[in-house]
Design a protein around this nucleic acid. Structure first.
Lengths: 337, 337
DNA sequence: GTGAAAGCGCTAACAA
DNA sequence: TTGTTAGCGCTTTCAC
């Protein structure tokens, strides 16, 4: 690898001059400039990032922490984040925690070492609060995406989860359902809490008492949701919920499959909804009615907020709520599309 | 952010001593050591990565280039890569190219700037050959994963694509099919070429002439495969392939959906297979028979090879071929599982 | 055992 | 208009 000195020597100028043409922040005579450029081409030179970073005190890289890359929710968010960052000359350093706390610690370490200039946390867990708070206290730029962490002094972009729950439940209600189940996410998850609140509000508006058996916390993943639907299927049909709203599209797939395995027809015997609107929800063999969570927008806005914050640390804290949208397909009947 | 100087001052020792305890590569008296450790804790110090990197001439970071993060194929590969890298103290810098050449150039730039110590390319395109070759010529550590690039002087880990094609076609043959279609990937893709060769070999073994209409190149994605299956569906039933092997599980979903849209039953009217064995292939509503491509192993081995190469640049070039596996589900009949 | 100081590659203040 | 040089934070050689 050649250095700026090699270029200077090759072009017969000082290193300062090379630096000037590199950053073009000083006038350099056309002849010298051309010689420098030629030397750069000839030696295939690229300025060393570590040296630049050390000098400038920044890495021009942001970190993106996601909890589970295999969840199709995150790749879209990550892509949008990368696109937005790139537009501003930043690279994205993605870290997949698999919800393991030690991975989060590694991410924080990278922050403290200056490997990244700021962090987007797309999966903040209660367990991460202290770590993230300590980062913030040291003034480290941080934005939470998708999952909020109440009381944490950081910028936040989320979707309108209350509205999402409201939309879902109202849709079921409109279709005539009364026994509507809400299969929530892990207890304490703010996303789940908000959506459940929306669901409860819709039920209250309709004058329906929500029975305890209708609302269950747990993992929103395929297997857990499958099991929970199996539980409903074993109920006598007069007690069984006629509609099931699941915290995620992936979980809704489990509900759908469990219903099928028990000979329950969708939507005739059970109507099913999810949240997210993943690509698989659109498959003809699925046609899942769902509430779309704007993941790309989440990623893009989070990045923009972070970049703003990096540029100006004393901005007021911001909190953005992105709109969600009902997507009607086949699993509740009344398909439009 | 505090620096090593702050620690030295706080602990009343020299920066050298701080460095020694940081890296613990010299004997330091217990008392001083304790004072240094205390100062580090007190000031919440972490050594600056840029300074270290500059000094050491390495970033302890590897780059992972994937072509499309939204394709569920890659996240699993990326996770395995991250796990393996982490085990050796390396971070992973993921870059999503979306198959755009300029993104590949940015990745190469990061390599030349020393932001990463080596690169795993999980989606090498013909168009990238020159760029990658020039990196190799400068001795930059590079390993190709999943997609080979003939003639490129780089380590390679791929799956046994010829065998995969063979397995798929033989499975259909065993089930009694004769008119077996192979919906290939983009023309010229080595993966597609190899799998097609396996398919053709199986057909030849069975003494069947492969009709031109049975083999079609194109995108292996949902929409393109959907269209191609629609084309088959319009054929008189005596000419229509009774079995369709698609280059990817996602594409096979398109085939499945097109068949359903045309009232064709699976597997009675058409048997369908994919490649990959994505999580969605296992859904009860899908139950796709497929050939499993070992994506996690691909990611893990690629990382190990790269780390080896970083440690020792003059290793012989390596080429590993990972085994694939037939996964029988419902879309061809004869389900075992 | 510990410390002073050189130097990794770069930028920019200052001098000329 | 261009060059000299200090210094970013760290590691390590060399000296004591």
């Amino acid at each position: 690898m050649s250095t700026i000195k090699d270029i200077a020597k090759n072009a017969g100028v000082s290193v300062a001059t090379v630096s000037y043409v590199l950053n073009n922040n000083r006038y350099v005579s056309p002849e010298k400039k051309e010689r420098v450029l030629a030397a750069i081409r000839e030696l295939n030179y690229a300025p060393n990032a570590a040296a630049r970073g050390l000098r400038a005190g920044e890495s021009r890289t942001i970190g993106l922490i996601v909890s589970d890359l295999s969840n199709p929710f995150y790749p879209d968010l990550a892509k949008a984040c990368e696109d937005a960052a790139q537009k501003h000359g930043y690279a994205v350093h993605m870290i997949n925690t698999n919800d393991r706390p030690e991975r989060m610690e590694q991410a924080a370490a990278q922050a403290r070492e200056g490997k990244v200039d700021g962090l987007i946390v797309a999966s903040a867990l209660e367990a991460d609060r202290e770590l993230l708070q300590s980062l913030r206290e040291r003034g480290f730029p941080l934005v939470l995406a998708h999952r909020r962490l109440d009381g944490l002094d950081a910028d936040l972009v989320e979707s309108d989860n209350f509205e999402a729950g409201l939309l879902a439940a109202r849709h079921m209600l409109r279709l005539g359902h009364r026994r509507i189940s809400f299969l929530a996410g892990v207890a304490g998850s703010p996303i789940s809490r908000l959506r459940e609140a929306g669901y409860r509000q819709a039920m209250a508006e309709a004058g329906i008492d929500v029975l305890p058996a209708w609302v269950q916390s747990g993992e929103a993943k395929y297997a857990a949701s499958y099991e929970r639907m199996l539980g409903y299927a074993d109920l006598p049909s007069g007690e069984r919920p006629t509609a099931v709203i699941n915290m995620s599209d992936i979980g809704a797939m489990g509900v759908l499959d469990a219903a099928a395995d028990r000979g329950l027809r969708v939507p005739e015997d059970v109507a099913v909804m999810g949240f997210d609107d993943l690509f698989l929800a659109a498959f003809r063999s699925v046609r899942l009615t769902t509430v779309r969570i704007p993941r790309s927008e989440l990623g893009r806005r989070a990045t923009e907020l972070l970049l703003d914050r990096i540029a100006d640390a004393k901005l007021d804290r911001r909190h953005e709520v992105l709109p969600v949208e009902l997507v009607v397909r086949g699993t509740c009947g009344g398909e439009r599309g």
